[in-house]
Every structure is written in structure tokens, then in C-alpha cells.
């Protein structure tokens, strides 16, 4: 059994230590908010916060997540209120299909925590490992900028 701290809760997982964290989150814990995109850590759809880092959960083995807090997109809301980045994305329709958004929201929230005054270039740079196929990149950057100050 592996003990994980996910979104503030401690959970026990009975899975091989090499199992990708993403598979554990989605299939064992039912946290399907982190999306599967490539399984190779190349698209960012499954990015979660692990300790102070943002990592692709598909490319992170379960053993590596042990002992560090994991925050997924489901863990960003506070008392049922969406994270300011999420609210800004909804307000400005900064998505089309939305499949890339979970990982982006996690990464953007971490960025604003670190750099509350990040400008457009910094936001784009921080999101550069995330792929969006619908072409909503500029809307997403603008939404993250709009969330500054309340994030």
C-alpha cells in the first residue's frame, strides 16, 4: 500500500509503485479531472502540483508521489469557489474543447502563487509545455492575467 496526500486528504493506494500517478488518480481514486493526453509528459493535459513542482502525472510514477502533497485541478477550488484562474477562464470563454485546461489551470495557479505580477510573456513561457489544439492560447494567457490580484 502506498499512502498519498491528494488535495489535502490522505488516501491509501494498492498499486504497483511504477504505475503512473495519472492512472492512480483517474482509475483508482476516481479523480478524472486530470486528463490523459499523451502518456509521455509532452502535452501538459495531466499536469498536477507535486510539492512545489508542477509535473505531468502521466510521467510520474506512484512511488515518486509518496510523501509529497499532490494537488489536482479538483483541489484548486476553495470552499466550493473556483480558483480565480478558473473563474477568469469561464468568464472570458478562454477555451474551446477544454481538454487541455485542467493542466493549464494547475500550472497557472502555481505560477501566480510564485509570481503574482507575471506578465503575458511570463505566462506564455510558463504554459509553453502545455499544448492547446483549438488555438485558445492567447485567450488563456489573457484570462490568467485577469486573475492576477485575486489569485
Amino acid at each position: 500500500m502506498t499512502e498519498l496526500q491528494v488535495n489535502g486528504e490522505t488516501v491509501a493506494v494498492d498499486a504497483d509503485g511504477e504505475t503512473p500517478l495519472l492512472t492512480v488518480l483517474r482509475d483508482e481514486l476516481g479523480l478524472v479531472g486530470s486528463r490523459f493526453g499523451c502518456g509521455q509528459g509532452l502535452c501538459g493535459a495531466c499536469v498536477v502540483r507535486l510539492g512545489d513542482a508542477v509535473v505531468p502525472a502521466c510521467d510520474t510514477p506512484l512511488w515518486q508521489a509518496e510523501g509529497q502533497p499532490v494537488t489536482t485541478v479538483e483541489g484548486l477550488a476553495r470552499d466550493g469557489v473556483p480558483h480565480p484562474v478558473q473563474q477568469a477562464l469561464i468568464n472570458s470563454q478562454a477555451a474551446q474543447c477544454g481538454y487541455c485546461v485542467s493542466g493549464i489551470v494547475v500550472a497557472a495557479a502555481a505560477l501566480l502563487e510564485r509570481e503574482p505580477d507575471a506578465d503575458a510573456d511570463r505566462v506564455a513561457e510558463a504554459l509553453d509545455r502545455h499544448l492547446c489544439r483549438c488555438g485558445a492560447q492567447r485567450r488563456i494567457v489573457a484570462a490568467v492575467l485577469a486573475a492576477r490580484g485575486s489569485a
Partner: peptide, 10 residues
């Protein structure tokens, strides 16, 4: 459809 998608709901 966007709130579910942005909030990470199924």
C-alpha cells in the same frame, strides 16, 4: 459545457 471542463469535473 465550460464550467465542468474548467473545474475538472467528469
Amino acid at each position: 459545457d465550460l464550467p465542468d471542463k474548467v473545474l475538472g469535473r467528469p
